[in-house]
Write a protein that binds this DNA or RNA. Structure first.
Length: 561
RNA sequence: GGCCCGUUGGUCAAGCGGCUAAGACACCGCCCUUUCACGGCGGUAACGGGAGUUCGAUUCUCCCACGGGUCACCA
């Protein structure tokens, strides 16, 4: 076979050589140890949690080492492309602290533009580049055209399944496949010429030289040493529309763009042999690989399953809607990514997570289950450290978008809202009531008449008459100008009057000699004023609500009993 | 089914030949308390199974089981 001739036949318009291309993509000059990483999404949908994971690793590794994080759009599948997805992806990532130094970024006009010297960063615009390398491979007898159409392939597979092979017999199917594959390698230049003359479409396949009985040694930075069988599958390099498959584009682009670390989900591990082979064929140095364990969820049978796009919690935009702040999500992601992160956080409560020395060795090799309990806990801590002003602003922003009526109310009197959120905030032991912005309404909605409602009746263990009397006495005694001590002394005194202990120690010593204690008395008042069994500090609540409202609510409660 | 990866409490996880097998979340209890919280202290709970190597295995090797991933002109 005259490969030189074959290459000319197939790619007669390609005049550049690999050397020409290499000259256009000179090696980066970066300090020793600087890592070049990337996020390479296909614009087919939203960012999902599983995608934020490797991306965060890529971002940390690049920026921690003084390297480069770039974004490359892998739009090689026109059929699946979703318009606007790339822009949405970039925006979402930005809210989670992932900012790109280079690559496809959003320009001032709101459209995607290139930034950096290694573009274009959209694979659909790099056709010429791939073709140069494709031609070279053909020339070297490492790739060949295949004129079997998609329909024919499908038909072949169908037949395999129909004839004596049960649809579960993978082995037989694989063998049959392999036989066909080998078949396709047999062709003559004349046949190719004829096909071309007839305008038949073709794909370019690699001529795989691997022996699956032999293993390639490989070291993954996360998974460690492993051995994988050599690849013997003539996989597709260029699709019939001339656009490369992921495999081919990955090899060419990551080499040309100077990626030092390829960070991706472990679902890529099975195709690693292909990539290694490709890099070898192309004469490229292989980058370092990090295959990150997947985030899992529990399926209906209680088994772990990869968190897929349709799952709740998969779409990062869901978190926004649920009211999680990005800082909290990042914080949670970090705890999952590095096992010593939480320890570091305890020692450095006020530092940004970007100051944490991210360590590849501290990464988990197995997939973890998403845990909302943990996220909530992390989130409560994050929010508890924010200022009242900050919280007010963020809750308002969230509400405006997802609970317009509530949002309007908050915005109508910002100072009022801020006063509310200031309760118990600051200091060494701040309250931790909010895990999400969505929690704000149930937490403090009672401050607004619109959302005020009695959530539970008084426990039956207490005498209604006592409650009425206590409420009534309190209403008479309440003076908004009292300081906290005076205010509470009054409550204690009222309690005592009706047989409720004001001294907790005395009460505990002999609970039977009392009807209850101050906590119960406070609860009577709390329920009347806030409608809830749990609420922030009553004194602060009353200060903000004001005498009129407090007394009005208490009177109403008395009347209803 | 082939191949690859994985398996310490309910969850996330330390461990890297010798420990009463950390810690965090969740759950439970107690304490503190001028209410609600915060906080403090404590508790329940784990090395998938079997061989081997070794004086000694959670840790090393092999086998099995289980779980996951993957087998496209999708990434």
């Amino acid at each position: 076979m005259d490969y030189q001739k074959l290459a000319e036949l197939l790619y007669k318009d390609v005049s550049k050589t690999p050397a020409d291309i290499e000259a256009e993509f000179p090696p980066r000059s970066l300090p020793e140890g600087a890592k070049v990483t990337r996020f390479a999404p296909s614009p087919t949908g939203f960012v999902h949690f599983g995608g934020l994971f490797p991306t965060t690793v890529a971002e940390r590794l690049a920026h921690q080492s003084g390297g480069v994080l770039y974004l490359r759009i892998e739009d090689t599948d026109a059929k699946r492309e979703v318009p606007g997805a790339a822009e949405a992806l970039i925006r979402t990532l930005a809210t989670y602290g992932i900012n790109f130094d280079e690559g496809a970024i959003i320009g001032e006009n709101g459209k995607i533009t290139d930034k950096g010297a290694y573009g274009p960063y959209k694979q659909s615009l790099r056709g010429d580049i791939y073709h140069v390398f494709a031609k070279q491979l053909v020339k070297e007898g490492k790739a060949y055209p295949c004129f079997t159409t998609e329909e024919e392939l499908e038909e072949l597979n169908k037949q395999n399944k129909k004839e004596e092979i049960k649809n579960t017999d993978w082995q037989a199917e694989a063998e049959a496949r392999r036989k066909e594959m080998l078949e396709r390698r047999n062709f003559t230049i004349e046949e190719v010429e004829a096909h071309l003359a007839a305008g038949d479409p073709f794909v370019l396949r690699i001529l795989a030289d691997g022996d699956p009985d032999k293993k390639v040694k490989f070291t993954d930075l996360v998974k460690g040493n492993m051995e994988i069988p050599e690849n013997d599958e003539d996989f597709v390099l260029l699709k019939s529309d001339g656009i490369p498959t992921y495999h081919f584009a990955h090899a060419v682009d990551d080499h040309l763009m100077g990626t030092t670390h390829v960070i991706r989900g472990e679902e890529w591990l099975p195709s690693l042999a292909k990539h290694l082979q490709l890099f070898r064929y192309l004469g490229f140095k292989t980058p370092k690989y990090m295959h990150i364990a997947q985030i899992m969820k529990l399926d209906e049978n209680g088994n772990k399953k990869k968190l897929s796009k349709r799952d709740m919690g998969a779409n990062m935009d869901d978190y926004t809607e649920m009211g999680y702040c990005p800082e909290a999500v990042c914080e949670y992601v970090m705890t999952l990514l590095n096992s010593n992160y939480e320890e570091w956080r305890m020692q450095n409560p006020d530092k940004s997570y970007t100051e944490f020395p991210f360590n590849i060795k501290k990464m988990s090799v197995s997939g973890c289950l998403f845990d909302f309990n943990k996220l909530n806990d992390v989130s409560k801590n994050v929010i508890s450290k924010m200022s009242a002003e900050d919280v007010t602003e963020k809750v308002s922003a969230w509400a405006t978008k997802f609970d317009a009526e509530f949002g309007e109310l908050l915005l109508a009197d910002k100072d009022y809202a801020e006063k509310i959120f200031a309760i118990g905030r600051g200091g060494k032991k701040p309250r931790k009531d909010l895990a999400t912005w969505k929690d704000a309404k149930p937490y403090m909605g009672f401050f607004y008449d619109k959302y005020f409602e009695i959530e539970a009746p008084y426990p039956e263990s207490f005498e209604k008459e006592d409650i009425k009397a206590i409420l009534s006495d309190f209403n008479d005694a309440f003076d908004a100008s009292d300081d906290m001590n005076v205010w509470f002394d009054k409550i204690k005194a009222i309690g005592e009057k009706y047989g409720y202990a004001s001294d907790m120690k005395a009460y505990k010593a002999s609970p039977e000699s009392f009807k209850g204690n101050v906590a119960d008395v406070s609860m009577f008042i709390r329920l009347a004023v806030t409608g809830k069994i749990n609420s922030p500090d009553m004194y602060s609540v009353m200060q903000i609500l004001g005498k009129e409202k407090v007394c009005e609510r208490i009177a109403k409660m008395i009347a209803s009993l």
